[in-house]
C-alpha cells in the first residue's frame, strides 16, 4: 500500500488543470460528457482511496487489537496513523458536503416545480427580474419571468425557448448534478463542476442556434439577457461568473465548433489511471487484510 492508494487522490488535479483548455475547444456536448464521466470516476476512486486509508485505523481499535492473531503485523503496513486519521476526517467532510449538495439541489428543484402547473410545458412568473430556468422533471418544463419575455423580441424569445428546451432534452441537470456530487466528494474537482456548468450553457446555445438557424441572433439574445442584469436591480443569474457569458457570445459569433474526439484522450487516460491505481490499491489492501486476520 503505497503509491497506488495515494494516486487517485491526486489524479483529479490534471483534470482540473486541463478542463478550461478542453472547454474552449471542440463541441461542448462531447467535452461536457467526457469531463463529467472522468470527474465522476476521479471522485469515486479518490473516495475509495480515503475509505481504504481510513480502514487501516481498524487495527488500532482495542477490541480488534485483542483479536489480533499476529500482533506484529499491522494492517496495511506503510500507512501512518495520522494519515489514516486525516483520511477518515476528509471522508466525513466529503459525506457532509455530498448530503448538503444533494439536499440543496433536490429542494430547489422541488420548489421550482411547485411554482406553478405547466401548460404546454411553460410556467410564466409575473416578475420583472429577467430569469429563465429549465425545471427538470417528467416531463420537465420551462419557468420564465414576464421580465425576460418583455426584454426579448419574438425571434429572441424563440432562442430562449430553444435554449431551455435543449437543457431538458439532453438532461443537462444530470451532468450538473453528477459534477456537483463529484466536487462535493473531492473539492479538487470544483473547477470541473464550474466548467461543466459553462459547457451545458454552450451546448444549449449551439442547439438553440441550430433550431433557429441563426448564430448571430442567438448571440444577440444571450447578450441582451445578460446586459439586462447590469447595474442595480435583481441579478439574473448565478452559478457562473459574467465572463462566461462573454465567452458564450464570442463562441456564437465564431463558426460552429468541429467535433474532435481526440480531445478526450487526456481525460480517458486519467480515467484509466484512476481505475488502475484503485484496482492495485484494493488488491494490496485485501492481501494485507487477509494476512492480518
Amino acid at each position: 500500500m503505497n503509491v497506488a492508494i495515494y494516486l487517485p487522490l491526486l489524479l483529479a488535479l490534471p483534470l482540473t488543470l486541463t478542463a478550461g483548455w478542453l472547454a474552449a475547444r471542440g463541441t461542448p456536448g462531447l467535452i461536457a460528457r467526457g469531463l463529467t464521466g472522468s470527474a465522476f470516476v476521479a471522485a469515486v476512486s479518490s473516495t475509495w482511496s480515503l475509505v481504504l486509508l481510513a480502514l487501516t485505523l481498524l487495527d488500532d481499535l482495542p477490541p480488534l487489537s485483542a483479536l489480533d492473531d499476529h500482533p506484529t503485523l499491522e494492517l496495511p503496513e506503510p500507512v501512518p496513523g495520522p494519515v489514516a486519521l486525516i483520511a477518515a476526517l476528509l471522508l466525513a467532510w466529503g459525506a457532509v458536503r455530498l448530503v448538503r449538495d444533494i439536499h440543496l439541489r433536490t429542494s430547489t428543484h422541488r420548489r421550482l416545480r411547485a411554482a406553478g402547473t405547466p401548460q404546454d410545458g411553460l410556467v410564466v412568473a409575473d416578475w420583472s427580474a429577467p430569469l429563465a430556468v429549465a425545471v427538470p422533471g417528467r416531463p420537465g418544463h420551462l419557468l420564465v419571468t414576464s421580465g425576460i419575455l418583455r426584454l426579448l423580441d419574438t425571434d429572441e424569445r424563440r432562442v430562449l425557448f430553444a435554449h431551455e428546451h435543449a437543457h431538458l432534452a439532453h438532461r443537462h441537470h444530470r451532468l450538473v448534478a453528477l459534477t456537483g456530487a463529484a466536487a462535493a466528494l473531492n473539492p479538487l474537482l470544483i473547477p470541473v463542476r464550474t466548467t461543466v456548468a459553462y459547457l451545458v450553457e454552450r451546448w444549449a446555445d449551439e442547439d438553440a442556434a441550430a433550431v433557429v438557424g441563426d448564430r448571430e441572433l442567438t448571440a444577440k439574445a444571450v447578450a441582451r439577457a445578460a446586459l439586462a442584469t447590469v447595474g442595480p436591480g435583481p441579478k439574473a443569474a448565478l452559478g457562473m461568473h459574467g465572463g462566461a457569458v462573454v465567452n458564450r457570445v464570442r463562441a456564437l459569433i465564431a463558426p460552429s465548433p468541429e467535433p474532435r474526439r481526440g480531445r478526450l484522450l487526456g481525460p480517458s487516460l486519467l480515467v484509466a489511471g484512476c481505475l488502475g491505481a484503485t484496482a492495485v490499491a484494493t488488491a494490496e489492501f485485501v492481501a494485507l487484510a487477509r494476512a492480518w486476520l
Binding site: 439541489r105 428543484h109 430556468v133 444549449a204 439586462a228 461568473h241 457569458v245
Partner: peptide, 8 residues
Amino acid sequence: AVLQQFAA
C-alpha cells in the same frame, strides 16, 4: 443549485 440560467 439551480440549473440553467439563461444568462449570468
